[in-house]
Structures are given as structure tokens and as C-alpha cells.
Design a binder for these strands. Structure first.
Lengths: 118, 118
DNA sequence: CTATCGTTCACCCAAATGGTTGACTAATAT
DNA sequence: ATATTAGTCAACCATTTGGGTGAACGATAG
């Protein structure tokens, strides 16, 4: 099944997943690490934190679920790679929100000028 | 105490609060509503959702905690107002992350050209 | 004075979250 | 053949989260 059309439902879900994933400090630190060093193995990532490897593995799965990272499984090593492009979903939502906001202010302004100068 | 200098700690906390707050669909819907209609009372907001007033009140408190909305208490009515500017914190983090990413790629590229043409 | 309105507060509940440990699979090294 | 390495899965635990209810409180309306 091709994703020719992402409906509002899915889009909201994607956004929720991304924001929730990015809402955790450890996960943001992982993203930063990947931005700095490029693709890394799960173990390499875990070495930077003093939580268990298992815990890191779970965080990575969350990030993967949100589409913020991808996994290339090469033999027994899993290379985790950042996908910065996905942040665009959040950018888009921000842009829309600000635009709705701006439109209202504009309409309000229009209304006021009409009233004071009919 | 004046906030002349927001340390890394606080900044991370702010970011976490904002992303967590925005990570909930109901709360995002509240933000959209406020963008469209301007300041609204708690009750007006609650009327748009089929969850209890109390639940909405809690959501608003979360948004307030994240600085995404402010409350002007006029007599017994609490006017809730959107603060779009706060989204800039997230923008900034995204920008930083992308910049770290871009810098690494640039360095990598530099390294490769040096190697092939010493 | 009493009723009603707008909100928060204090609990209660189920589900999700972030962490742990221990067992398991599969690949590599000795 | 055995030990080590890389990673996941499953179970468990404490805390947080999103929801609900009922009481309380201050202000305005009758």
C-alpha cells in the first residue's frame, strides 16, 4: 500500500509520536549524539549514558517508531542513524499554528480599520 | 531573582516541558483553538471537547506550566491566551541539531577531498 | 439569603512510561 | 568447544499521565 495521501488522522499521530519521542531528555541527547557522530551502534550510544543498555535500546525503539532514526541491521550490529528530515513535520505544525494566529490578528485589524473609517 | 542567564539545565527543562505539553493531541487542539479565536475562558475551551471541564482545566495548567499559554484572571473568569513566541525554544533546538548535523557532514566532506587530493 | 456560575482542589483509577534484571539468540574470537 | 559480544524480549516496579467525581470557594444574580 502506497502512501499517496496521508490523512489528517495519521498526520496527527505522526506529530504526537515525534513530539512525545523528543519530549524525553535522554532521547534528545541520543539525537544530538547521532547528529555529532553519524550512525552509531546501540552499544556505542549506551556507553554515553549511565542507564542500562536495555533502557537505551527501548529509547531507540521509541525514536524509531517516531521515524526520527532508522536502523540498518548489519549482521549482529544495528547501526542507528538520525533522520533530521522528520523534524519537518513539527516545523509544519508550528508554521500552520502561527499562520492561523496571524490570520486572526489580520482579520481583527481589518475589522478595526473598517469601523474607525467607514 | 532575575533571569539574566538561563543555564543549560533550565533550558533543557523548558524544552522538555514544551515538547511534552505539545505531545498531547487534546492540548494541541486547545492551542489551535486559541490561535483561531484569541483569548478564551476555560469553560469556552471545555465546551469544544467531550471530556470533563476538570480535565480541560488540567490540560491548561500543563500548557501554562510550559509557558505556551498565559492566564489573565479577571474577576472569576480566567482568560487563557496563546503565547506563540514560546515555540521559538523548539525552533532553536531544531536549528542547533540540524547545524551540528550539517557541520559533521561538512567536515566529512573536507576530509574526503583532502584524502583524494593531498 | 439562596442559587448558580466559573474554577480549582483533593482523591481515585487505569494505562503508559522509564527504569531495572534475567533469560535468550546469534555471531565472533580464543 | 567455549567464552564474549551485540542486541532483543519478557517480566517487574515505581512514577507519571489522562481521565473521572465530588466538594469547596468566591462572585454574581434572583
Amino acid at each position: 500500500m502506497l502512501f499517496t495521501h496521508m490523512d489528517e488522522q495519521d498526520s496527527q499521530q505522526r506529530l504526537t509520536d515525534i513530539l512525545k519521542a523528543a519530549g524525553d531528555p535522554t532521547r534528545r541527547a541520543i539525537l544530538t549524539l547521532l547528529a555529532q557522530h553519524g550512525p552509531l551502534r546501540v552499544t556505542d550510544i549506551a556507553a554515553r549514558f549511565d542507564i542500562s543498555l536495555n533502557s537505551v535500546s527501548k529509547h531507540i525503539k521509541v525514536l524509531e517508531g517516531a521515524g526520527l532514526v532508522t536502523r540498518r541491521t548489519e549482521w549482529r550490529e544495528h547501526m542507528i542513524e538520525l533522520r533530521v528530515e522528520e523534524l519537518a513535520h513539527v516545523d509544519r505544525w508550528f508554521r500552520d499554528l502561527r499562520s492561523i494566529w496571524a490570520l486572526r490578528l489580520e482579520a481583527l485589524d481589518h475589522l478595526l480599520t473598517q469601523e474607525t473609517d467607514p
